[in-house]
Simulated scan of single mutants.
Amino acid sequence: MTTPHVPSRALSSTALRRRTLGLCALLALGAHARVRAQPSGPGPVEPVFDIPAGDLQRALEVFARQAQAQLLYRTEDLKGTVCAGLKGRLRVDEALRRLLGGTRLRFRRDVSGAFVVFPEGAGA
């Protein structure tokens, strides 16, 4: 008995690339729809901060750990700067604003969500 011949459906590299891109787009849309369909929770959790007064660089290291946040700064911008410390349950951005209060430093969020600390007047 002979095996019937099944014609192969070879795709050109362009057709294969188009199908792959189409599949990726559909998967991405499906993942996006699932994420959006999840019910929202009660809102962001406010961490409890306990940051001692003193050297600002040390305070920012403690802040980053307690807030579970990423901070970006130049150590030379912090040199010799002190802070009053911080205690209590606060939103992360409010806690950082209070830590930097009374200094010449400000912050912004970058596209990754990290906090970028920079001197006032600098074009961060």
Rank of each mutant, 00 (worst) to 15 (best):
M1A: 08
M1H: 02
T2E: 12
T3L: 11
T3F: 07
H5W: 01
H5L: 13
V6R: 09
P7C: 00
S8E: 14
S8H: 09
S12P: 00
S12R: 02
S12Y: 01
S13C: 01
T14C: 04
T14S: 15
A15P: 04
L16M: 12
R17V: 00
R17I: 03
R17K: 05
R18H: 04
R19S: 00
R19Y: 08
T20A: 09
T20P: 00
L23H: 13
L23T: 12
C24K: 05
C24L: 13
A25G: 10
L26I: 07
L26R: 03
L27Q: 14
G30H: 10
G30F: 14
A31V: 02
H32F: 07
H32G: 13
V35S: 11
R36L: 14
Q38F: 12
P39W: 00
P39C: 05
G41N: 14
G41D: 11
G41A: 13
P42T: 11
G43W: 03
P44S: 08
V45G: 01
V45Y: 08
V48H: 13
V48W: 12
F49N: 12
D50R: 04
D50I: 05
I51S: 06
P52N: 02
G54H: 11
D55E: 15
D55T: 06
L56V: 13
L56S: 09
L56G: 12
Q57R: 15
Q57K: 15
Q57L: 14
R58V: 04
R58D: 10
A59Q: 12
L60A: 07
L60N: 08
L60Q: 03
V62H: 06
A64M: 08
A64G: 03
R65I: 04
R65M: 04
Q68C: 01
Q68I: 01
A69I: 00
L71R: 05
T75M: 10
E76F: 09
D77N: 15
L78F: 01
K79Q: 15
V82W: 00
V82G: 03
A84Q: 15
L86N: 03
K87V: 13
K87G: 03
G88I: 02
R91D: 05
V92W: 06
V92A: 01
V92F: 01
D93R: 07
L96F: 03
R97K: 03
R98M: 12
L99R: 07
L99A: 04
L99H: 05
L99C: 03
G101H: 08
G102K: 06
T103S: 15
T103G: 06
R104L: 02
R104F: 03
R104N: 10
L105K: 09
D110T: 10
S112E: 15
S112P: 05
S112W: 08
G113T: 06
G113N: 08
A114E: 14
A114M: 09
F115V: 12
F115S: 15
V116R: 09
F118D: 12
P119N: 10
P119H: 14
E120Y: 14
E120P: 09
G121S: 14
A122R: 13
G123E: 12
G123W: 07
G123H: 09
